[in-house]
Nucleic acid binder design. Sequence first.
DNA 1: ATTTGCTATAGTTTTTACCTATATCAGATG
DNA 2: CATCTGATATAGGTAAAAACTATAGCAAAT
Lengths: 274, 274
Amino acid sequence: MDLRALEYFVAIYESGSLSAASKKKFVAQPSISSSLKQLEQSLSTSLFVRHARGVQATHAGEQLYPLAKQLLDQAVAIRDVFSTDTTKTPFRLGLIKGLGVARMSDLLGRFTRAVDSLELTLVSQDEPCQARIISRDLQLNNEQFVPMWQEEYQLAIPLHHGLALIDNINILDLQDLAFIQRSPCEGWAYLKQALKNANVRVDTRAKIQTIEYALGLVKAGLGCAFIPVSDDIIKDQKIHFKPIKDLSISREIGLGYTHMSDTVKMLQAVACQN
Amino acid sequence: MDLRALEYFVAIYESGSLSAASKKKFVAQPSISSSLKQLEQSLSTSLFVRHARGVQATHAGEQLYPLAKQLLDQAVAIRDVFSTDTTKTPFRLGLIKGLGVARMSDLLGRFTRAVDSLELTLVSQDEPCQARIISRDLQLNNEQFVPMWQEEYQLAIPLHHGLALIDNINILDLQDLAFIQRSPCEGWAYLKQALKNANVRVDTRAKIQTIEYALGLVKAGLGCAFIPVSDDIIKDQKIHFKPIKDLSISREIGLGYTHMSDTVKMLQAVACQN
DNA sequence: ATTTGCTATAGTTTTTACCTATATCAGATG
DNA sequence: CATCTGATATAGGTAAAAACTATAGCAAAT
């Protein structure tokens, strides 16, 4: 009987399934299954009734849970006795803008829970940091890039704009469109080329750098913008988001790092989950 | 921080040295050293001051010991909650006669302490058993034999016997000697051949099988016997034990087993420890 | 009926805990 | 004071354990 096995047991008990426990503990599901089996063998009792979907604690499992909890808490307390003033794990994470608050909150929440005593500092992606959440085009030569998710570029349209009524927006529909140009931007470069190819001109009203400002101006009715959208942004009810037909471009967001420390490793594990 | 590391720590604390702890825990000394080092790293503190001979607990070590003890006791208690009526480990150990009470007591004591809930039954070596402490000549074809110790054959002489005064007994000194013959016995077969080679005859007064009876008769003054001696036997102050010059034979005592179960494995570990 | 999300097993890989060998050192001993 | 002894720490290697991926099988959900 080992502390790790008890940790897995507690995770299973609290999650209600082996699969959920495996996510919680950042190990593969068969590792949880095998560990539980060995714990049951060493205690000579069954701890859970297995169902097709999830497990249910047996009487023995109910008995063991508080005891295991207490033992694990005591082990943590022992660690704390000796480590109270020692390393918090400082970690500077660079972020690009516009990553989506809900998604990032979730990610960072899971990250901070996964690392003991993490002291997380969020900085801009161009400041000194140990890892960065960046788009693929920002990847440096000496940097590893682990893809996390993709965001499609879509046209952001003010609420009462004519284009809001068109179901499938064609590039020709952009002729003389009041446009908010965001650059430097992969998407803008792509769109620019496509506009040139179609002999279409937009009416650039503003040139800005950040997605936030672009969205602000769209909301104010100044014009449209072509930006990568996340779930957060799409929820904004004062803006319509529509793809442009035959213009499918997306940006790939991922984790960039040059040195794989344990903390970066854990961030990668957290990031690559789901 | 792991339970095993804490067990090793407690063993070191209680023994006062890593070497003693390694014997207590039946692992090699480098395993203890390495485990302690890792525990100290994980707690970010030094637990012992190392000396050339043994270690001394630091303040942190003094602090940790009761906490570790408590945690380990709790872990044992949890095991007990679920295993109170389950397996005692029954184990039948066959023994040959004349193995030496002190040595065997020590061995069996360490064996029973090393195995949780051991239920040890001592039987004769020719009864059904899972392992046997036997001499090499009793080893069966399908049996593994792990040497444990050797016992030299010596002449057992009554206290007031003439031979007791001779410093170096020669085989010729055995001419017409009142003799207690123990057989079947490897030693007797060897001696018999040597007597024949030297054209010497002993006066066989008794033929017995066991070392105990042989010693009893020697003590009673009936004659001498040629038997393997252990520390126990040599302590008997009513008998002299002397080697016979140029007749160096010994019997090899070891562990015989046909199937290597965990319990047999532990017995072997205990047995092979000096 | 099909899809989905779970558990359990098989086979493989990686990591850990053990081993033996031995260097080094300081205390014990003759 | 030289030598021996018993200790700890490290190096290199091996075996076992803990992880992985792949996937079979199953029952609930759709």
